[in-house]
Design a protein around this nucleic acid. Sequence first.
DNA 1: AAAGACTAAGTAAACGTTTACAAGGATAAC
DNA 2: GTTATCCTTGTAAACGTTTACTTAGTCTTT
Lengths: 345, 345
Amino acid sequence: MAYDKENIRNVTIKDVAKRAEVSIATVSRILNGKGRVSPLLAERVLLAAKELQYQPNDVARALKIKESRSIGLIIPDIENPFFPALVRGVQDAAKIHNYAVILCNADGKTEEEKKYIQFLYSKRVDGIAFTESVDNKKNIALLDSLGIPVVLLDRRVEGMKASGVSTDNRLGAFMATKHLIEKGKRRIVFINGSPKLSSGADRASGYQDALLSYNIQYDKKLAFIGAFTYESGYAAVENLLLSCHQFDAIFASNDIMAIGAIECLNQYGIRVPEDVAVVGFDDIRLATWYKPLLTTIRQPVYEMGQYAIKLLVEHITGERSSPYEKIFVPELMIRQSSGGLEESK
Amino acid sequence: MAYDKENIRNVTIKDVAKRAEVSIATVSRILNGKGRVSPLLAERVLLAAKELQYQPNDVARALKIKESRSIGLIIPDIENPFFPALVRGVQDAAKIHNYAVILCNADGKTEEEKKYIQFLYSKRVDGIAFTESVDNKKNIALLDSLGIPVVLLDRRVEGMKASGVSTDNRLGAFMATKHLIEKGKRRIVFINGSPKLSSGADRASGYQDALLSYNIQYDKKLAFIGAFTYESGYAAVENLLLSCHQFDAIFASNDIMAIGAIECLNQYGIRVPEDVAVVGFDDIRLATWYKPLLTTIRQPVYEMGQYAIKLLVEHITGERSSPYEKIFVPELMIRQSSGGLEESK
DNA sequence: AAAGACTAAGTAAACGTTTACAAGGATAAC
DNA sequence: GTTATCCTTGTAAACGTTTACTTAGTCTTT
């Protein structure tokens, strides 16, 4: 049934060996540059390989040396604007080390993640970079029991069971809130993504810490829980407006929630930043295209992806054995949605 | 050196066979549901597999049956907002058929694409979905010579050398231009992406056809060539303004070019849509978040990705042998940047 | 000149599957 | 009761590599 499978020239190391009149072991050694070989044979083999257009079969190689040169990348959803840069960072780094990246969108469902882990395991990936949906540690344990090296992306790692790459979310949230306070805002709404994720929890505590350090009473009614989506940002603000609580600023847990929030405010005739200042988180590209330009906390997402693979490869090769946590420093990007640079009021 | 490689339970079919006291052939048959087996043994084997937490080794399987259950996906750049939805469509469809998707960002460089093709071939992927950078046919020929089934994404296929999935770009461009004309515009700028790509060429001809059918003289000075990037859209308009040609509308070859164009217009104090109407292409998500909301031609990107895999799988399994071209119908999304719905002037 | 020490190349086993073929047991047919 | 047929299971080869081990040849060394 298969696509022309018969007709296809499928050159193996054997064919090369025959043409160069040497043994297959010699061919292998020459092609991999292992052991010493006479230049004469080397030349003959290389020529034969070229003439036959030999391309090594990595699956056979993988079987033999137990190393597939591929890694899995599990994220919630590539359509979420946060992830493309991360994925690109991962892929670029993987490419340098000659790893193939298998992309998996698990939609933040623990069960899906588990399926993908098993799928990737049956493919015998050498490692997995993983944006875990919920910090439930079960999937980490699974990976551990399978012996697959893993690096957690965008998540702080409880108890250091695995290496992780993240941004200092607490600090970022602190900076965002502080910025709003310095703008003269006192009734600052916080729209969280998922507080079950370390990123959500940390941003919540950064928000509270900032209020505390300026002696502003933390008001539960101004704290919302959403889902890192546009709709969720929109809905949070709508609820807020209906409940008639006063507020003069919003700190949203990511940029698309911030945009959802602003859209809703606009819908109700509330101006940003004049009436309500808004700060987001992530600094996705859209933040500089959206109007008003979005003030936000920048995460070096591309670099995070790169670093994750650097770490993962170190685990795979055994260069690094114990978990390591890399925490990037966030940066406040002041733009229009918070009223810009000038300190007001 | 490798990560705990020694300590890891690595259960093979042999272990299962031993525990169930049958031959490995029987285990294989039972696990794959091939051939008839007695229910008694089946039960024993299944139990043993479960107890040992046996997970098949797909790389061994791939070697034996010459089918890796993985496909390559070569795109220019996942950070380009056009691609996430496409990739998601591809991955979702691949998942249904149990294929792993290996993602490759080739940045539209023919040489990179070639490298990735060879890389993917050495991994013995079963097929490749490919957004070719330039219509030079060389890489298609390479794929053909390697005997790898291929489906071209977002590209029309000259001479039907391979299957392809695309949108009717000529029609889309025609609709966009017609819309502007019906808005009363006569001096319509066209900013092309790459005219070397079928998508670019087709959009150019759609633009010209529309002008023609309304008896509007095609003016070379209003046609620009860019690169499908924000910067390129911005630069095109800047050049245009410096050259002092009159114009009252812009049709950009994709949405981010349109946004780049609008940003530049704004920079020069020109209002959209009051002074200049703008239409984009693709309908990326950003089009509905950007201000003004972007009038654009919608491509069903997610569906295109899905369909590409459907087609690719048909080629892989041999269900389909000759190339097939699927062309989706574009849709005009009228929003603010062209002045909205009401027919003006 | 003989023995020892290196080297370079070859032989064959192994990685974990699938599957053609062989073998044996049970059932059916006469 | 013998033979033919069918069905289930086992044996072993194969997929394309890598690599431990063997072998044979070359070079030292005395």
